[in-house]
């Protein structure tokens, strides 16, 4: 029993004021090119955060480095006050749609059930209850009718919604989404926005890489403006100013000299 309790992931009470995500001095380079430089950022207690910046600003790399998918040169990441490695159950992830092979022989429901694998554990089959939870997640993005369809037979927007449903099935506290609104149809955009609002009202934190500056203020309460370094971060109304936008998009920090 003790073992079990210890392995449970830890969520401090809201009053304690521990941020869902605390990033300190995160630095990443691909070979000699700096991609992220000394990024420190504290996520808000709850709400929707847009990570914005020009192409090559390191937005996707920021997500991947925070999630431990890209090895950092320096920096630490804490989730609810503890190292990420101990809090994985609390983290949900929607990768870019292009990151997988959609001809893979699985159904939409199979993919969404993957969000439950961590709860199911090693070597066990997906039980009926977990299958039901996956189906429920599919329903939340309006895809229940496509549960048994092979994923390659879905449109791009539907595939995006399957990925979103998989993240919902994780029942996480802190979500990371890599451009969930990029190039999607109107129905998918509605579904994504609905889910984002739901998560927000449930007190979750969602960190979204977002490309469309026009819609940032409509959807997101917070922004993190990134161009290799942090340019600005905070409530959208205060931070999304012309001066900050010029500072973020005006020059290409990725043209900086190579590292030694």
């Amino acid at each position: 029993m003790l073992q079990r309790l210890r392995s449970l992931d830890f969520i401090p009470p809201k009053e304690a004021g521990v941020s869902p995500l605390l990033v300190k001095g995160l630095t990443v380079a691909y070979h000699r090119r700096p991609v992220l430089w000394d990024v420190s950022w504290t996520a808000p207690q709850q709400g929707l955060v847009a990570v914005v910046g020009p192409n090559g600003a390191g937005k996707s790399t920021f997500l991947k480095a925070v999630l431990g998918l890209v090895p950092p040169l320096a920096g630490t990441v804490e989730v609810f006050g503890r190292p990420l490695a101990r809090q994985r159950r609390l983290v949900g992830y929607v990768p870019q749609r292009e990151s997988v092979d959609w001809d893979f022989p699985v159904s939409a429901l199979d993919v969404v059930a993957m969000g439950r694998y961590r709860m199911i554990g090693w070597g066990r089959r997906v039980s009926k209850a977990h299958r039901q939870a996956a189906l429920h997640a599919l329903d939340r993005v309006g895809m229940a009718d496509f549960a048994n369809r092979q994923i390659g037979q879905l449109s791009g927007g539907q595939q995006q919604r399957v990925f979103l449903a998989r993240a919902l099935a994780q029942e996480a506290r802190l979500y990371f989404m890599d451009e969930p609104l990029a190039g999607v149809d109107a129905a998918t955009e509605r579904a994504v926005l609905d889910v984002l609002r739901d998560l927000d009202s449930q007190g979750r934190t969602v960190v979204c890489v977002h490309h469309d500056l026009q819609t940032v203020a409509d959807v997101f309460d917070h922004v993190l403006m990134l161009n290799v370094k942090v340019v600005a971060s905070g409530p959208t109304r205060e931070v999304l100013t012309d001066a900050n936008l010029r500072a973020t998009y005006g020059h290409r920090a990725s043209d900086a000299p190579l590292l030694p």
């Binding site: 999630l67 431990g68 998918l69 990151s99 699985v106 993957m114 694998y117 070597g123 089959r125």
Partner: peptide, 16 residues
């Protein structure tokens, strides 16, 4: 289940 997950989406597997 594990082989299927890693073959389909290694990144997601590692995040979990």
């Amino acid at each position: 289940k594990e082989l299927k997950l890693v073959a389909f989406d290694e990144g997601f597997a590692r995040v979990q």
